[in-house]
Simulated assay, not measured.
Amino acid sequence: MEFLNVIFNNPWIWLILGVIVMGLELIVPGVYLFWVGGGLITTGVSVVAFADLPGVPLAVQIIIFVVALFGWVLAGIYLQNRARQAAPSALNAGLSQYAGRHVQVVQVFADAHQASQPGCLGRIRLEDTTYGVISRHPLKEGQFVVILAYQDGKFLVEPTSN
């Protein structure tokens, strides 16, 4: 047992283990190893802070590690929950999630007046797909438009003010 006290009385062991475990997070992602590494580094810093004492016993170091690990895990859970609440979810929002996005017209068809619909028909490129659009205003190829809504299988668009 004296051998372990000699090894772990050196703060570099805790600090190096912390960096290695945090580095493993890059290889085996899961976020939990980051918090374990934080606990290890905190323990190493604590051993440095108490270096004036005749030596911090291994049992005290383990208690410091457990408390630090618990604190890091709670901080991680808090941060992850806060990030989840701040990020809006577009899950099941369908194509209506694109309302407000500025896109470019890639193709314009004949005026829709001839097709008994008001406005102009065309196609826009949105991400990697083209979609049909209806506009109350004339459209030109290459023109930027803003998506207002998705209805009846087409995007309703309006030319941007640029």
Rank of each mutant, 00 (worst) to 15 (best):
L95H: 11
A59F: 14
T130L: 01
L139F: 03
C120E: 02
G39I: 05
I62W: 09
Q97W: 02
V56S: 04
I20T: 05
S116A: 14
L17V: 10
Q117I: 11
E2D: 15
L95A: 11
S161E: 14
A68Y: 06
G37T: 08
Y131Q: 00
V45F: 13
K140W: 04
Q97C: 08
L126A: 01
L40S: 11
W72Q: 10
N9F: 04
E25D: 14
D111P: 06
P88N: 08
A149T: 10
A59I: 15
F144H: 08
I147D: 00
R82Q: 11
I63H: 06
S89F: 05
F3N: 07
D128V: 02
P159K: 05
G39S: 08
I64V: 15
L15Y: 03
L156F: 10
W72K: 07
R123P: 00
I134P: 00
I147F: 00
C120T: 08
T129H: 01
G55R: 09
F65K: 11
A93K: 13
A59C: 10
P54D: 11
P118M: 12
N92D: 15
T42S: 15
G122M: 00
A75I: 15
R82N: 12
L26R: 02
L74I: 13
Q114W: 03
S161T: 14
N10L: 05
G100L: 02
K140M: 12
I41G: 03
W35N: 06
G119M: 01
A51L: 04
L15W: 06
G100T: 03
T42I: 13
Y32A: 14
Q104Y: 00
P11N: 01
D52E: 15
S96Q: 14
F34R: 06
G119D: 01
L121N: 04
Q143A: 09
W12C: 07
E127N: 12
A83E: 12
V66G: 09
T129W: 00
V145Q: 02
E141A: 05
G122P: 01
F144Y: 08
V133L: 00
R136F: 11
H102E: 09
N81A: 07
V36G: 04
L79A: 13
R125M: 11
N10A: 12
V133R: 00
Y150T: 03
N10R: 07
Q117L: 11
Y98P: 01
Q114S: 07
